[in-house]
Amino acid sequence: PGVLEPTSTLVRVARTASTLGIAIEGGANTRQPLPRIVTIQKGGSAYNCGQLRVGQVILEVNGISLRGREHQEAARLIAEAFKTKERDHIEFLVTEFN
């Protein structure tokens, strides 16, 4: 009681282009503790998906929490999730709230 759950959304991004096409900033021990989407590149898989927005904060990728991960590690986890051949998509848990 008294604690508001921020709204989070599960977004599935199909691998429809050779790149994911997002830029992220943030990570543990920075002013932005969870990775935030700062750019979505036209023609990338994320753009084609149509459900990701600049400003959204990425909480999880394929069910892996990004909390406590430094920038490089968060970026590596997202890059690996995009590259893995086991799936033809990535699942992001995102929120509009910081």
Binding site: I22, T30, T39, Q41, A79
Partner: peptide, 15 residues
């Protein structure tokens, strides 16, 4: 605590 104010900005990575 002023700790939050001293945290550095993050780099940006294109994925």
């Amino acid at each position: 605590r002023e700790k939050r104010l001293t945290l550095p900005p993050s780099e940006i990575t294109l994925l």
